[in-house]
Design a protein around this nucleic acid. Sequence first.
DNA 1: AGTCGAGCGCGCA
DNA 2: TGCGCGCTCGACT
Length: 104
Amino acid sequence: MTLAESIYKLCKQIPKGKISTYKELGKTLNIKAYQAIGRALKKNPDPENTPCFKIIKSNGEIGGYAGKITGKKIEEKIKRLKSEGIEIKQGKIELSKYLHRFDN
DNA sequence: AGTCGAGCGCGCA
DNA sequence: TGCGCGCTCGACT
């Protein structure tokens, strides 16, 4: 099981209307290389089934996802998050409200 | 407070 | 084999 696979699984485990952070994922997977998570998400084999946009930075920002999207725009992702019932303020998300913890 | 540098693990050249 | 990244944290300013 590669790290990416675990990440995808966790992504899908996030209930509707909730999100998670790289840090939480890292802790859940017990790794310290949070960048690897983002790296894995970037590959995202199943954008339809793997809501990678639900994974954000620990400070509530969307993350690099915003700036360097491959041919797409952050606004679109925000819209998608909004569709889930997540409210975004000035490009940020209220973690305390929407952050889903994997317990573990 | 805000900024800078190091560290981690996987992917790609 | 080596470097960079959709990050985070600790140390210094």
